[in-house]
Every structure is written in structure tokens, then in C-alpha cells.
Design a protein around this nucleic acid. Structure first.
Lengths: 197, 197
DNA sequence: CCCTAATTTTAATCCGGATTAAAATTTTCG
DNA sequence: CGAAAATTTTAATCCGGATTAAAATTAGGG
């Protein structure tokens, strides 16, 4: 079976997922150019060439890592929205979930540092998702302003600040569970305090 | 004269500075691996090989970009401290200056995305400066807590959040002066609101 | 104007790592 | 067990971009 595995089996998907996580870890720690497919393969007990069984190439690998990152962000935002509450409540819940995702079992989430070097279709795809996610979060903030739970502010810029703080997490978090606890406690608390009316 | 120009003339230094900015812009926009020396050279109306007259190689170029970024961060922090005031005042002033540096004439400041792929000596150097800067900012926060101007908080994590928000700026800021104004106004305001007791 | 140093270009070379093809091994399941 | 599919490896190949060396051009001072 080719790597264009469409009728993907369970085992195949699992390994692919492990591949994406290993790649995300490498990319976050060593940078894109500093990561060779061999580095990624070694983490899986494989040879570099074996990676091509799961993915078309390095480009595709980054792309998939970023897709995964975008999906996780969107998923936790959706969940926070689904749980309901005021704009403030939703935003706080979103931060709790997203920080937990970064620091928890969800494994390392790739920092989107190489978007411009993606293939055009991929780049567009990621940028669209990324923008959508930002806009959705801004909508939550705006709703909070409307319902009086969030201070009146520039939602675009405030969103940029909050997203930046969260997106930067992989830069300093390297798996220490003690640090993870601190982050999960402090981040939502601090970031939301600035939103109180 | 070799590129190890030590008795550097004025013109030489100026061109070197322009080189670093062009490189920072490229790295921020296209990523490290996505940037070829040719890309950088074109911005200066030069040939790729000419860059070697000013700098030892691509590694060195990133390193110098990061040094510049670290220096700017430290400089504005020092300035904010020098201007005095409560811990809160210093922190706010620092944010104003740093955001302005990112969005203003100081030109693009390189995002430190490729630290691990630097040569060991360079890596250590950058990491040390980066850590020092973070610790210095944490000290400011702690001072603010002591003098009652800043809410009691985990200074390490709060510092991580603030630094992340600022460091992420180059990801979405691409030179629009209108956006720059928004950022300079909103960032310090929002980030400091979360520090009020 | 000429000489020397500074700057830039041209034209290779070099190299690591991505990619590929074919072969070998392992797994699945009748 | 044995055949077919799935998975991995071995062993090239390939290639873009970094780097280098030497030549050409430009700039400035006597």
C-alpha cells in the first residue's frame, strides 16, 4: 500500500499520529531546518526512509503538524463555546483547555514558524484556519464586551496578545510536570485578569 | 580587508546594520530555512556572495540577528528601570518601549526560532542573554509586588506570558503604521491591567 | 591620473540531507 | 504453513543552496 493510505487502518493512524508528535517535538526544539527526517525517525525507532511510508515528505510533515496544531486550537475553542457561559467564562475556559493541551498529554503542539515556506496550497490552508481561529476568539471577546463580562477593549490586539502568550508556550515548556501545573494555574488567571471590566 | 573587519569604518558598520535588518525581516517572514542568502542579498541590491564580506556565514547571520534582538530587549528594559518609578511603572514603561521597538523604526526584530541550530558557543551566548533578560524582568515584577504596585503572582509564569505576547508580535505585525498605533496603545494597557492589585 | 584598498561579482565547488527505487523483512490471515 | 499485503531497510541518486577563490569593479587619497 502506498503512503496515500486512504482506507487507513487503526495501527497506521496511530503510528502516523506518533510521527506527527515526534516531528512537532523536533521542530519546536531544533527548528525546522535543524531537524532532519533522520532525527524524527530515530525517535520512532525507524530509518529516515521509512517516514515516507507515512507521509509524502518534509513539507507535508510540517504541514500536517500545523494542521494538527490548528485543529487542536479550534477544537478547544469549540468545546469552550459549547460549555456556554458569559464571554468571559468562555474565554477563560478556552485558555484553560489550550494551555492544558500545550502542557499535557496532547503532547507538544508545533509552533507555526515556517508557514511561509509551505507550498502555496498548504500555506493558504493553514493561514485560513489560523485566521478563522483568531476571528472566532475575537468574537468570544466581543460577546463578552456586549454581555458586560469583559472590559471594553480592542479585540483584535487583545486577541493578538493572548494568542501570542499561548503560542509561545512551547518555547519555554519542555515537559516538566511541575512547570505544567504552574502554567495551567497562572496563565488563565493572569490573562483573564486583564479582561475584567 | 577581510570580513573580520575590526577597525570597522562607519560605512561598513552601516551596511552591516542594514544587512542584519534585511536578514531579520526575511527570517521573520520566510523562516530560517525558507530564507536563502540570495533573498537577503537582493534586498540590499547585492549578490549572495557579497554577504560574506560582512559576515562569516548564515549561522553567524542568525546569531547576529538574535544578538541584536537580545540587545534591544535588554536596552529598553534598562532604560525603563533607569526612568524609575514603582515596579508597575517600570514594567509598563518597558512594555511601551519594547512594543514600540517592534513596531517602529527599530525595524523588524528577529524572532528567536532557531536557537537550537546555532553553534554551541553562540547558542549558549544567546540563551544566557535571553535568560538574563527574563530574570531581570521578573525582578521588576517582584519589586512591584513588594512595593504593592503589582498584584501578587507567579512572576516566572506571568513573565512568560508577557514575554510571549511581545515576542509573538512579528508574527502578525508587518509594518502597517495604523496597526502599529493600535499595538502600542493596546498591548501595554491590556498586559498591565492584569498586573493591577 | 595612478595606485592601493575596499567592495562586489562571477563561476565554480561542495555537501548534507531530502528523496527514490528496489530489495528485504515482518505481519496478516486464509 | 504459505501467499499476499504491509512495513522497513539498504543503497543510491539528486539537488539547492551555502561556501569559496579568483577576478573585476569601484572609491578615495596622493
Amino acid at each position: 500500500m502506498t503512503s496515500a493510505n486512504s482506507g487507513a487502518t487503526r495501527a497506521f493512524d496511530d503510528k502516523r499520529e506518533r510521527l506527527l508528535r515526534a516531528a512537532a517535538r523536533c521542530f519546536n526544539e531544533k527548528g525546522y531546518s535543524g531537524t532532519s527526517l533522520k532525527d524524527v525517525a530515530i525517535q520512532l525507532g525507524l530509518t529516515d526512509a521509512a517516514i515516507y511510508y507515512y507521509i509524502a515528505g518534509k513539507q507535508e510533515l510540517v504541514y500536517q503538524c500545523y494542521m494538527r496544531a490548528a485543529d487542536i486550537g479550534q477544537r478547544v475553542l469549540d468545546q469552550a463555546i459549547a460549555e456556554g457561559g458569559s464571554g468571559f467564562d468562555v474565554a477563560r475556559r478556552y485558555l484553560e483547555l489550550h494551555v492544558a493541551a500545550h502542557c499535557g498529554d496532547e503532547g507538544p503542539i508545533a509552533i507555526m514558524s515556517e508557514i511561509p515556506s509551505l507550498a502555496p496550497e498548504h500555506r493558504e490552508d493553514i493561514l485560513t484556519r489560523s485566521r478563522t481561529h483568531s476571528r472566532n476568539f475575537e468574537t468570544v471577546l466581543r460577546r463578552g464586551i456586549d454581555d458586560g463580562s469583559v472590559v471594553d477593549c480592542d479585540v483584535r490586539m487583545t486577541g493578538n496578545a493572548i494568542m501570542g502568550a499561548v503560542n509561545w508556550i512551547p518555547k519555554w515548556f519542555h515537559g516538566d510536570p511541575v512547570v505544567a501545573e504552574d502554567a495551567v494555574r497562572t496563565f488563565p488567571e493572569y490573562l483573564m485578569r486583564g479582561l475584567k471590566p
